[in-house]
């Protein structure tokens, strides 16, 4: 019994949906960033699975995964920097209270 591609896609889908639910419902901004990381990881699993099981197996999917990882690391660094600057000015990490641009 060997593992097919749809098993990997299902794991990635569940991970993506958990991340999406967390990003939509959590109120702590750090937790929202963590959930976005989960969603990006689900995409990475898909890319690596298709680089093995796809129509043209090759190393391109793994290289794309490395690029995605780099972009995710940059994103989380800038996101946390924005969060710290916001915390210094407003003393909150609750996303419901971040409405300066709405007023």
């Amino acid at each position: 019994m060997t593992v097919s591609i749809s098993s990997y896609l299902m794991v990635a889908l569940i991970l993506f949906c958990v991340g999406l639910y967390g990003a939509l419902t959590k109120r702590n901004a750090v937790v929202v960033l963590i959930s976005i990381e989960l969603m990006l990881n689900a995409v990475n699993i898909n890319l690596v699975a298709f680089s093995k099981f796809g129509l043209h197996p090759g190393v391109a999917g793994q290289i794309f995964t490395l690029f995605t990882m780099t972009v995710a690391a940059a994103e989380v660094a800038v996101g946390l920097a924005i969060l710290i600057a916001l915390y210094r000015n407003k003393a909150t990490v609750n996303v419901d209270e971040m409405d300066q641009m709405k007023r």
Binding site: K26, R27, N28, V31, L33, V76, L80, L83, Y87
Partner: peptide, 20 residues
């Protein structure tokens, strides 16, 4: 570790106050 630093620098005993 970056996330842990983010938590330590914002709220020490950060709790997620439930969902909305």
């Amino acid at each position: 570790i970056l996330m842990l630093f983010g938590i330590m620098l914002t709220k020490h005993d950060a709790k997620d106050e439930g969902a909305g």
